[in-house]
Amino acid sequence: MKYHVHFYVNGDAYDLDVPANKTMLDVLRDDLFLTGTKEGCGAGECGACTVIVDDVPLNACLVLAPELDGVHITTVEGLSDGPKLSPLQQSFIKHGALQCGFCTPGFLMSATALLNENPHPTREEIIDSISGNLCRCTGYKRIVEAIEEIAARGQTAETQE
């Protein structure tokens, strides 16, 4: 049985018929070809598939496709305004907060959700917000510093410079 869902990704409306056992992650990656959202474990443990669903960061691998109906999703593809990067994306580059890049979209989404809700998080709040995202390359230091810079500037992550 398929479910009809109407939802938005990065502001664009989509109508799809989805099977009950498909995940939001598979819809994003395999139906909409939004492959910036990554699958690292498929079990909600690594955070590589983090997207923002109605302002809340979620692991897309844990959400079933029928639940897409009526939601607004932001993925990493929606962070920049075309080639104009968000302040947080720029800060990740400036601080060298990425290496292999596979976990990077997930970190950007977790941190963007945090900064949208709380423009001046403390270091502890920043660390807490990304503690569900695993990174094997960086040791996290530069990721935390990149987010801290935006937190200090008091810009929401999606405000363009």
Partner: peptide, 11 residues
Amino acid sequence: ERVDAIRKVTG
């Protein structure tokens, strides 16, 4: 700046 940086922060 890393030459792969923009691609990696934009997905």
